[in-house]
Design a protein around this nucleic acid. Sequence first.
DNA 1: GGAAGGCCTGTTAGCGATACCATGAGCTGG
DNA 2: CCAGCTCATGGTATCGCTAACAGGCCTTCC
Lengths: 326, 326
Amino acid sequence: MEDVAELAGVSAMTVSRVLNAPEKVRPETRARVLAAVRELDYRPNSAARVLVTGRSGVLGVVCFDTTLYGPASTLFGIEQAARDSDYLVSIASLPALNRTWITRGIDRLRSQSVDGVIVVAPHESAAEGLRHLPPGLPAVDVGGGTDLPVPVAAVDQYAGAARATRHLLSLGHRTVWHLSGPPNWIDASGRVAGWRSVLEAEGREVPEPLVGDWTAHSGYEIGKRLAREPDVTAIFVANDHMAMGVLRALREAGRRVPEDVSVVGFDDVPEAAYFWPPLTTVRQNFGEVGRQAFQLLLDRIFGVDGEARRMVEPELVVRESTGVSP
Amino acid sequence: MEDVAELAGVSAMTVSRVLNAPEKVRPETRARVLAAVRELDYRPNSAARVLVTGRSGVLGVVCFDTTLYGPASTLFGIEQAARDSDYLVSIASLPALNRTWITRGIDRLRSQSVDGVIVVAPHESAAEGLRHLPPGLPAVDVGGGTDLPVPVAAVDQYAGAARATRHLLSLGHRTVWHLSGPPNWIDASGRVAGWRSVLEAEGREVPEPLVGDWTAHSGYEIGKRLAREPDVTAIFVANDHMAMGVLRALREAGRRVPEDVSVVGFDDVPEAAYFWPPLTTVRQNFGEVGRQAFQLLLDRIFGVDGEARRMVEPELVVRESTGVSP
DNA sequence: GGAAGGCCTGTTAGCGATACCATGAGCTGG
DNA sequence: CCAGCTCATGGTATCGCTAACAGGCCTTCC
């Protein structure tokens, strides 16, 4: 920086100002400084800046498994929004979902002076971790449960599940079975609740939900059990991958979809339209959730007390697994 | 830090030593310092440390679309390896794959004083970007092409494609058609080359490869064309998602898999075993690639001149799409 | 018994930037 | 014509840490 200052015939202070508050420098001087900056390919040292300002321009994301479609897409949305605002994203993935690891992940990020943290771990343990947040650290939760001490951005799982369930009932089914995600996952319980509420409101029988682990494998195994029950004519599956396993199990058991059984998934992964049959599902705009989470965090960082909860509406996408289309 | 030193009755220098080179401090003193650290919940300021040491403990990953299964899994592998070595990972995703954006992504990371950079952009433009790397910045490429000026970790696409092709020929097919990924993608061209080499070595006709864009949609559209050709009895598809589209197109055209047409994919996404029929495919261990890339980077950071290329062997996974299993 | 050497700890300086206050030039208005 | 203001710039201290050297004490060995 000293060199740039010398080359431009000004002081280091002026160089700093050109870079941080250009309007406070005479245009002519500014131009000279910028020329020197380019000439020397000068790049400010962020560590020094952090040291004195306390701002790093980096935000941290704590997440569990970024190979899953949902988290990966959310992360991507966060990253895009961050890039547009000149923030950098550091990630801390967790080997397991519990309070200890979440706290450790946050600490790891904090030790790098991140300006804020977004927690993408839609799991009950995240709530515990967030309750014991270091004070003064701006944080936002994605997908989170109720009563969190931080702002939340999420897809309205409850509404999505309700929509899916109503759709199935509207096709004339007596009731709707549910294959849920693992307990303790916020998304999973939200979908169970939405599904149950519709059945209860309509006075239908509420079958005991079956529990999978989000994988196609678990969908297949549980699907085989469901396929044996002639009563089962409509299944709401908590994600598309499990739904894929269910579809295969039904087919192998000789039960036709949608003629004998209707199936609805959740997520709308890009491949869902190419399942066999194409899957009716609930589309979640993960990218939007990520962007909203970033906005919330930005508000917190700058001390704006905006809304504490941003809900993204899911959308029912009807395909052939719940009715024969042309 | 001053406070910790005072509480422990030592100088700041000793506190620093306890944290960075514990063996140079008498155990008794060390214990006193550590107690003080805990008592005050002291956390070293990484910015200050970076400023003086030049090491940040952060590595950067430049990537394109982290919602795709491959890049997401690789990133995950890198992150896990980094965590085990107490590194943090910052990501810079690119809005487009070309030299300008790659350079910009690297610059963005560099401005945060990352210790090194891993580029996960298996695209020709990455090569250009890597050739104009700022000198002195340790860098590693994932999946990269030939003649790169940096170490490379990758799955041996050529070998994988060759294996898939030989497998199809071994089933008695006259030749094998290929649905490739987008040109300019290194993975795509490696798979084309492996496929072509086997056909040529066996003296088979080499059909013009068809070009998709990795999506199930493109697989479906191109699959419809292939389904109309009675000649086509064996298809090697460059990834599993496109293969899914192909399977659906074949089925809709009344061509049975594997009785009429055999299909092989690439990747072995977790759902591949639940496609209809279950997909024979080439498993890539993305996580391992990520770990290897991290190791290579670590070597570069510490000036170890190890191997410049780490190849991970892919594995053919035979399922029903190329033969009826029980 | 005293010089040499090893171990542990402390002192000083500086990493590269910005916050804060000071300064001087130029303008305005009574 | 000068007080009093604004505007552009500069000087200095400081953020929290560690590299490099310095020094005190205790051992070791002739």
